[in-house]
């Protein structure tokens, strides 16, 4: 079976111009080589801190932007080949939900109009049928059909996120990109939204790309995981294996920094000293070497390649040493 969505060596660079007349322009490597392949019904979690390139990856996957290098394949088709002839058809296969439930719904439109928008744009369907479909989506995400005529400001954050899910799934897409979908929500609401997301994933056999910084949520739902740092993938592979036995020092630090309620789940806190370097001016060699506790001379000169080690992809010269600690 072919992958629902596949990325091959995706890169996205942005030219950045400093202000002023004599400003020199530099290049921001927002995403610097990411490959992945995700089947229907599975979940890929993309984990990393701000500026790691996870949102850029989402923009490439949803075809809003073109990769600088590399290819994206949706249902096996490269949308940017043939001058983008396939883009509009492929858009129906991929949808997205966002972090901020307050910004992601148009405040001047009724809930019904918001949910129907993808249908109106992509299909020809009589209004009554559209309304039926929208109302059935509303009940699927646990809202009532009479919410159809209300405006977004009358709903709480959790309800808005349900509406966003209804909008994303109304066209029955094959792939759903979820960019931090629960991090703005309260714990009890977060659990409700995650359940809905997982139920609908199963029902519609969705390939889910789940972008998050909250590792406790990721641990709950991911099949595969991709850890990113400053635009580069540092570790990638089976989620359970990586959670149980992280091999990249950065993954270890991330897991250690996540506060856990249960003392058994608490890892020894690996102190990460220092700040996240600027993505505009990343360190030479391994991007993580400025904060790494296993750093050696080689790290600051040679960038490690993403290689198969310990049944997963790791980009670290000294993964073995890191694994032992």
């Amino acid at each position: 079976m072919s992958a629902a969505i596949e990325g091959r060596n995706l890169k996205r660079y942005y030219p950045v111009k400093d202000r002023g007349i004599f400003a020199k322009s530099s290049i921001l490597k927002a995403l610097d080589g990411a490959s992945f392949s995700l089947e229907s019904g599975k979940t890929l979690a993309i984990v990393g801190e701000s500026g790691c390139g996870k949102s850029t990856l989402a923009r490439l996957a949803t075809m809003i932007e073109k990769p600088t290098e590399g290819n994206i394949f949706i249902s096996g088709i490269d949308p940017h080949a043939n001058n983008g002839a396939e883009i509009s058809r492929l858009r129906q296969d991929i949808q997205m939900i966002f972090q901020d439930p307050y910004g992601s719904l148009n405040p001047r439109k009724k809930i019904g109009t918001i949910i129907e928008e993808p249908i109106v744009i992509n299909r020809k369907m009589p209004a009554a049928e559209r309304r039926n479909l929208a109302e059935s989506m509303l009940s699927k995400v646990g809202l009532r059909p009479e919410h159809y005529d209300r405006y977004p400001h009358m709903f709480s954050g959790g309800q808005r996120q349900r509406i966003a899910i209804a909008r994303a799934l109304v066209l029955k897409p094959k792939i759903l990109i979820a960019d931090e979908p629960v991090s703005a929500l309260d714990i009890s609401i977060q659990a409700q939204v995650l359940n809905i997301l997982m139920d609908l994933q199963e029902e519609m056999n969705l390939a889910l790309v789940f972008i998050s910084h909250d590792l406790s949520v990721v641990r709950r739902i991911a099949d595969q995981i991709m850890v990113m740092y400053l635009g580069k993938v540092v570790e990638q592979g089976d989620a359970k294996m990586i959670f149980d036995n992280p091999s990249h020092p950065y993954t270890q630090a991330l897991l250690g920094a996540t506060p856990a309620v249960d003392p058994k789940l608490r890892r020894e806190r690996v102190k990460l000293t220092g700040e996240l370097p600027s993505p505009l001016n990343p360190p030479t060699g391994c991007a993580f070497h400025t904060r790494c506790r296993f750093v050696q001379d080689k790290c600051s000169t040679t960038a490690p390649k993403l290689e198969m080690q310990f049944e997963r992809q790791v980009a670290c010269h000294f993964a073995e040493i890191a694994m032992k600690n």
Binding site: S88, R91, M96, S104, L105, I121, N122, A164, L171
Partner: peptide
């Protein structure tokens, strides 16, 4: 705002 991106993703 994100609702604009949502529209773009839908192909508006």
């Amino acid at each position: 705002k994100e609702y604009v991106i949502a529209s773009k993703i839908s192909g508006a």
